[in-house]
């Protein structure tokens, strides 16, 4: 489900990027190539992403440390009622929400999300390269959005977006 969120750029692709993007238009390629300095190799993908890794390790370490330290510092007084699921004092439901089943509406929302998310992933590069794509790009995107709007309107009319 989440795979659409990531644009995975393997290292070789980044180095090949100027050729890869060349179809966008000669002007755009030159501008891009200069501003990101692909040619000089100033962007080493490893170095650009390393700080994220370090910050991630710091954050993960902090979170893990907090959780572990809390088990040592906190008191432990067993009480049967305490470890029951909290439902405002009444007997907890043995199987929350009918044994792990939940309303199909959430699946519908998730599916709509995926569709629109893919739309976003298409819209972003289009928006960035808009000035180079000109009228053709605009019409192509208009067609794509129209194709997307049809099922959206259909779902809307069929009550797929109604919540209660």
């Amino acid at each position: 489900m989440e795979s659409s969120r990531f644009i995975v750029l393997p290292a070789p692709l980044i180095h090949e990027a100027p050729e890869h993007y060349a179809c966008i238009g000669r002007e755009g390629f030159h501008k891009r190539a200069k501003s990101f300095s692909y040619e000089q190799g100033a962007i080493d993908p490893v170095n650009v992403y390393t700080p994220i890794l370090i910050l991630g390790i710091l954050a993960f370490g902090f979170a893990a440390f907090s959780i572990i330290i809390a088990t040592l510092t906190g008191p432990k007084r067993y009480n049967r009622a305490k470890v029951d699921a909290y439902e405002c004092g009444i007997e907890p439901t043995p199987q929350p929400m009918g044994g792990g089943r939940f309303p199909v509406k959430y699946y519908l929302t998730a599916m709509m999300f995926i569709i629109f998310d893919i739309e976003l992933v298409f819209l972003y590069p289009w928006a960035v390269a808009f000035d180079q794509l000109e009228l053709f790009g605009f019409l192509a995107m208009a067609l794509f959005l129209f194709n997307l709007a049809v099922p959206f309107v259909y779902e809307w009319r069929r009550g797929g977006l109604e919540w209660d």
Binding site: S66, I69, A70, T71, T73, G74, P75, K76, R77, K82, V83, D84, A85, Y86, P92, P96
Partner: peptide
Amino acid sequence: LAFKEEILPKS
């Protein structure tokens, strides 16, 4: 909060 009990629910 660090000195509060951690409750691990049964379920």
